[in-house]
Structures are given as structure tokens and as C-alpha cells.
């Protein structure tokens, strides 16, 4: 076995894992606060990919900008803003009216919302695969000989750094700010929190907005890195990210990142050294195995049953 190849697969897995982790954050935060699986989250991420391409196209082909850093920063800001709006609207329209009803109602509503978003984008933007021009490319970092090397691209570095940075920021918000305290209070006991003067509806909206914003960050990075997307990516990536969130222990922020990284690495290594056909089977089997031995995921708190 060649060390360079193993290292390269680790780099591949780390990048993929960071992306899964970023999207998993949205699942885990929403789950943490209202205990529902937000199936439409993957589609929010898909919308952000479209927004990215639209922003870049507007800046470059309409307004004729050429200064790449400015385009990237502005794209990121605009996409985060609009995707947050999508997250907020979805919560307001499809989930808030269901607050307090039986547990499965929001799940079905979320599945419906996921269908709506997919088809809404498909009808307005056509079903064809879209793309963005490659803005950052050219000088990957290569270590090793001409034939046998490990390569890290600028985008891969950016993805991993941004993923960890957003994780740190989110953890800080949850752990150390007034907003975070309100979030945690709502999570533990919504009725009690509202009695203590926390506007729980507002807190839940904010959580949805934060979740959508992290999906937007992932959307921008992924779109720039792979250059192509369609209206179906939300489903494909969404299921993986959701798996990552559960693997790490749903409701736990570091768990989402850990789950994402493990899933990304597992997929890359299995695909690279065993078989690509059965890569997804392996990923799901890993999840099942982990849950059999740790029924609440790797970093999840064990459920305390109240009697």
C-alpha cells in the first residue's frame, strides 16, 4: 500500500466529511430544539447552490465584475441572507402551525415541503444540471514526486477551515451567549422557557435561520468546489448529512461534525481501497453498527426516561 495514496484518500475524505458536517449542523440544531427531523433541510441547501450560481452569474455576466475575492465575499453574504429567508419561511409556513400536535405531523409536513422546494426550483429554473465557472483553481499544493504525490487544492483547504470555523462560532453562540442560553432553555423545556419570558417561537425561528445559514455556507463551498449541481442534490446529500448527524448523536453540534468526518472518511477509504459499488452500503452499515452499540450516537446524550 502506498502512503501517498492513503494520505490522498484521507484528504478526500476530510473534505467530503467537512461538507457533510456543515449540512448536518442544520439537522442537528433543529432536532435539538424541537425534536423533529427537518427533511426539507437538504433542499434548503440545494436552493443555496442555485442562489450561489445566480449571484456569481449576476456579478460576472451582468455587472461585469472580475475581482474574484469581492465576488466570493458578496456571493457568500447574499446567499446566506436569502437562504436564511428560505429557512425562516419554511419554518413559518410548514412547521409553526403544527407546533404542539403529534410528533409525526411535522415530519410529513417536512417531506411535503421537501417535494415542494424541489419542484419549485425545477419548474422555475428548469430541470437541467447547472454549473458555475471555476473561480478558484490552478495551483494545488503537491507533495511528492511527479508521479506519486498528495495534492490539496485551495478549495479543499478553504472547505475544511470554514467548516471548523463555523463549528467554533456556532458552539460559541450556543454555549456562551444569551441567545444560546435561550436556545438551550427552549430545548430543555419549552413551556418553562416561555414562562420565564423567552419568546420560544422567535428562538425556534432563529435556530432555523442559523441552520439555513450553515447550509448556505456549505452550498457556496460545494458549488464552487464541484462546479455543478441540480435540483436533486438536496436529497442525495441530505440523507448522508442526516446520517452523519445521527451517527454523531443528533442534537450535539460537535457530534454533527464528528459524524460528518467519520462518514466522509469511511466513504472515501472504502471507495478507494475496497469497492465503490458498496460504498453507501458500508456507510449505512457503519451507522447501524454504531447505533447498536451506542443507541444515542457517538456524542449524543443517552435518553433519560422519565417515569
Amino acid at each position: 500500500m502506498d502512503w501517498m495514496i492513503i494520505l490522498q484518500q484521507l484528504v478526500n475524505g476530510l473534505t467530503l466529511g467537512a461538507i457533510y458536517g456543515l449540512i448536518a449542523v442544520g439537522y442537528t440544531m433543529v432536532y435539538g430544539i424541537i425534536g423533529m427531523i427537518n427533511f426539507a433541510h437538504g433542499d434548503i441547501y440545494m436552493v443555496s447552490a442555485y442562489l450561489t450560481a445566480i449571484c456569481i452569474a449576476v456579478f460576472m455576466s451582468w455587472w461585469g465584475w472580475t475581482f474574484v475575492p469581492l465576488i466570493l465575499v458578496l456571493t457568500l453574504i447574499v446567499v446566506i441572507l436569502f437562504t436564511s429567508l428560505y429557512g425562516w419561511v419554511v419554518e413559518r409556513v410548514a412547521y409553526r402551525p403544527l407546533r404542539g400536535s403529534q410528533r409525526l405531523a411535522p415530519l410529513i409536513s417536512a417531506i411535503g415541503m421537501s417535494l415542494v422546494l424541489q419542484n419549485y426550483v425545477q419548474i422555475s429554473q428548469s430541470a437541467r444540471t447547472q454549473g458555475v465557472p471555476s473561480l478558484i483553481s490552478g495551483h494545488p499544493l503537491r507533495i511528492g514526486s511527479e508521479q506519486n504525490f498528495v495534492q490539496i487544492t485551495e478549495m479543499q483547504i478553504l472547505i475544511v477551515i470554514v467548516a471548523f470555523l463555523s463549528m467554533a462560532v456556532l458552539s460559541y453562540i450556543i454555549q456562551a451567549t444569551a441567545l444560546g442560553r435561550a436556545c438551550r432553555a427552549t430545548q430543555q423545556d419549552r413551556v418553562m422557557a416561555s414562562i420565564l419570558g423567552i419568546n420560544t417561537d422567535k428562538i425556534i425561528s432563529i435556530v432555523f435561520i442559523i441552520g439555513a445559514a450553515s447550509a448556505a455556507v456549505a452550498g457556496v463551498l460545494v458549488t464552487l468546489n464541484y462546479g455543478t449541481f441540480d435540483f436533486f442534490i438536496g436529497f442525495v446529500t441530505g440523507i448522508k448529512a442526516f446520517t452523519a448527524a445521527v451517527l454523531g448523536g443528533i442534537g450535539s453540534l460537535p457530534g454533527a461534525m464528528l459524524g460528518g468526518l467519520i462518514l466522509g472518511l469511511a466513504e472515501s477509504l472504502f471507495s478507494g481501497f475496497v469497492n465503490t459499488d458498496y460504498k453507501d452500503v458500508f456507510a449505512f452499515a457503519l451507522l447501524v453498527l454504531v447505533l447498536i452499540f451506542r443507541p444515542s450516537g457517538l456524542l449524543g446524550k443517552p435518553e433519560v426516561e422519565k417515569v
Binding site: V93, A94, S109, G112, M113, S114, L115, Q118, N119, I123
Partner: peptide, 14 residues
């Protein structure tokens, strides 16, 4: 078709 289908799922639940 699918758009209306999804919408009716959401509306039914509400």
C-alpha cells in the same frame, strides 16, 4: 403535479 402533491401534504397536516 408533484408540486401540488407536496403542497397538499403540508396543507393536510396543518
Amino acid at each position: 403535479r408533484v408540486l401540488i402533491f407536496g403542497m397538499s401534504m403540508v396543507l393536510m397536516m396543518i
